[in-house]
Design a protein around this nucleic acid. Structure first.
Lengths: 226, 226
DNA sequence: CATCAATTGAACTGTACAGTTCAGTCCAAT
DNA sequence: ATTGGACTGAACTGTACAGTTCAATTGATG
């Protein structure tokens, strides 16, 4: 029960992730200056929130004139939407690790659990989530887009994996989507608020290993074979 | 397995909840006008977010002059903090139902599960959460205060209940705090994003009964006696 | 009725910011 | 060398808003 991964390295593609983005509207590659603007905007918006950042700040941080910003983006809102959309694209793939070589179900689930935990608590993930929750209501469609490219995609990947395990007789699950949600929630729930609310020294907080091992244990006792 | 509560009525104390608030600073009861201001501010802030609401709007909605607003609250920030703090106070007690009369563990947990689900998805709860996530970073201590009076208190209540059940031989749990987190998470996780992100018609979404029954089932298979 | 505190309404100050404009610069392609 | 598109920097417009001020009004109390 102690096969945790020691340090979970989650690639944080914050830097440079707007380098070669394809504009979904035109299908063309993003000009260098536009990428700079998105880069800077991403950092500022996720650090301070949409409302607290001025376009002057964005331009300055991007090392670009304000006129250039408006040459590439119609408005502050459109810049924001473009940034969030681009940031969501690489979400789900990063969270599901390779587990084909795992010796058994317990170690596979443990690895997945640590991957979820590490991914969810990465600064970039938290920043996107915070911004979506905060500004979602004011940007119709943004939250939906986030959910579909992000959490939903990941949960489907996990449900698919579980279904395969059932077919191999390694698990017994009648509702894999529910089981997938349950496993994610048991890992995520006890941990994410700590980071989200920046609670560093609350005595009630559980550490990652306890949470992941606990989730795996409960999951296997419910859905394990026999 | 079908003893769900049909419609879970969660009292939404949005209206009038600032009527007789005691100021934690002075220990005195809040003047009527101040309560009106907090009432109006609460509605506006939770609907539109801190940044999007002007003090003129608050004054107007409260049916009060702006000078009066500033007579009671030093600044917009302080008004906001006062509102959130007051709103958090009645958080935890509302979420934990009475289950002493429940015939067995399954029905008790099912009732608790539905209570959690109903409480979490109440507009007022969601609104507070959204505002905390969105504005937390800019108001030091606010998120901590929310967590301590809210989620943490509830989870402790549940952990205490579970511990008592263990002592009666109804459950087998070595880490009740972890178990409490797991149960809450399994109920909350699959449901809250639907409301948070306003996803009405996603085909992957599970309904409340499925989620609660699933959580109870998994919980009992893991922690149930023998 | 007189007093006094709370409240009102309206005008005012200062600032921050979205978005525009434009003359001038840079640079790559011809 | 010239042309043309992208970029700069700086000034400018208009607006929204936090917070202030104050003379006039209200209303409860003695």
């Amino acid at each position: 029960m102690n096969n945790q991964l020691k340090s979970m390295e989650i690639a944080d593609p914050s830097a440079g992730c707007f380098g070669h983005v394809i504009d979904p509207e035109t299908g063309e590659e993003l000009p260098a200056k536009a990428a700079q603007v998105m880069e800077a905007g991403s950092k500022l918006f996720t650090e301070q929130g949409f409302g607290a950042v001025s376009m002057d700040q964005v331009a300055k941080a991007a090392g670009v004139s304000k006129a250039t910003v408006y040459a590439h983006f119609q408005s502050k809102e459109q810049l924001f939407v473009a940034i969030v959309r681009a940031a969501c694209l690489s979400y789900a793939e990063n969270a599901m690790p390779e587990v084909r070589d795992a010796p058994d179900m317990r170690s596979a689930l443990t690895r997945i659990g640590h991957s979820i935990a590490g991914f969810l608590m990465a600064p970039r993930t938290m920043a996107i989530y915070r911004v979506i929750v905060a500004e979602g209501p004011r940007f119709p469609g943004l939250a939906q887009g986030y959910y579909e490219t992000g959490p939903r995609t990941f949960k489907r990947l996990l449900a698919k994996y579980l279904t395969e395990a059932v077919e191999k007789g390694l698990l017994q699950i009648d509702n894999p989507r529910l089981a997938s949600e349950q496993f994610c929630s048991m890992v995520r729930g006890p941990l994410y608020m700590k980071v989200l609310l920046d609670l560093k020294d609350d005595p009630d907080l559980l550490d990652t290993n306890t949470v992941v091992d606990g989730a795996v244990e409960v999951f296997l006792r419910s859905y394990g074979p026999k």
